[in-house]
Simulated scan of single mutants.
Amino acid sequence: MSEFHQQPNVFVNHVTIKVQELKRSITFYKNIVGFQVLEQSETIAVLTSNGTTPLLTLEKRGEVVPKQPRTTGLYHFAILLPNRKELGKFINHLTEQRFQITGAANHEISEALYFNDPDGNGIEVYCDTPPSSWRWQNGLIHATNSQLDFESIAADANGELWEGLPPQTLMGHIHLHVSDIKRAEQFYHQGLGLDVVIRMDDHALFFSTGGYHHHIGVNIWNGTGAPQPQKNSVGLQNFTINFPNEKAKQTIVQNLQSLQYSVSQINGNYVTNDPSGNEIILAVGK
């Protein structure tokens, strides 16, 4: 497991998204992305990479309308593979499937592919570069958007066949559309206690704990003041932030409440919303 996705760090470990056709989405996430189905009903499918740990939940409750443009919510969730070889195997799999991606980049801190699910929910699949190679200055990490070397990564697969997501796969991070970058910084930095590790001028921020390049990203690329989507729109339902213990979680609950953010208890979990309406479950890891 990534050192940045275990105690004592605070990180995103589960995402729930809304989809229009559950059966179609399950087929996509199994055959293209490589998840296994851990649990399934008429309204939800819980997906895993190792057969026991939920990483992604697909939800279709009632009538779900298509993804609404220029709103707050999910930009992408990011699936972290354990190494470059697995990313190479995934690239070879997508090539065999003739699946069209929407983007790719060498960020220096990571190598990443970008694409959408059948409903337009954004997905990143990536592997980290060695943390010893990351460049830090004044508490901020240097990241780039260079061209991805597909051939080199694919060659690292060493001819091994893709067999789905490896068991060590994690929910690496989540990236959100927000309506106000300053309010987002207050919420995620002062409220949730995450460190600001990347600043992209005045339009995007990235937060983490434990020296990771980011556990959460936010941007205003849908416009300052972007509205929230309809409750039944395709997109983000919620995501879960994992705390190392109950004391750490309670401290954050108190921080949020002192900043006048609402925190409620639903089904035994603490739930809050960022200033742009993105719903967050605050949980303690098992």
Rank of each mutant, 00 (worst) to 15 (best):
S208Y: 04
F207K: 04
K182S: 03
H203G: 08
D202F: 02
F207P: 07
R199I: 10
G211T: 04
V178A: 05
R183V: 03
P167R: 11
E163P: 00
I198E: 01
E160H: 11
T209K: 03
H177T: 04
D156N: 12
G164C: 10
E160Y: 07
A157R: 12
A204N: 07
E160V: 15
M171Y: 05
H189P: 01
D195Y: 00
L161V: 13
I174Q: 06
T169V: 13
S208W: 02
M200A: 09
N158K: 15
G210A: 07
D180E: 14
A204V: 11
G172W: 00
H214E: 02
G211E: 02
R183L: 13
A157L: 12
P166Y: 07
G159E: 09
Y188A: 11
R199C: 08
W162R: 10
E160F: 05
Q186F: 01
Q186N: 04
D201K: 14
W162P: 13
M171H: 05
S179G: 14
F187L: 07
L170I: 11
E160A: 15
G164E: 05
V196S: 02
E160T: 12
A157S: 15
I198Y: 03
G159L: 08
G159F: 10
K182P: 00
I181E: 00
A184C: 10
A204M: 15
P166E: 05
D156V: 13
M171R: 08
L205R: 12
L176E: 02
G193P: 13
H214G: 11
H177I: 09
G159N: 07
D180F: 03
V178N: 10
M200N: 13
G211I: 06
I198N: 06
G210C: 12
D202Q: 13
L176K: 05
L192N: 02
Y212H: 09
H173I: 09
D201A: 15
L170T: 08
D180Y: 05
T169K: 09
H203L: 08
T209M: 08
D195L: 03
R199P: 08
L165E: 10
L205S: 12
H177C: 00
D180C: 08
E160N: 14
H203T: 14
L192H: 04
M200Q: 12
I174N: 07
F187P: 13
T209R: 03
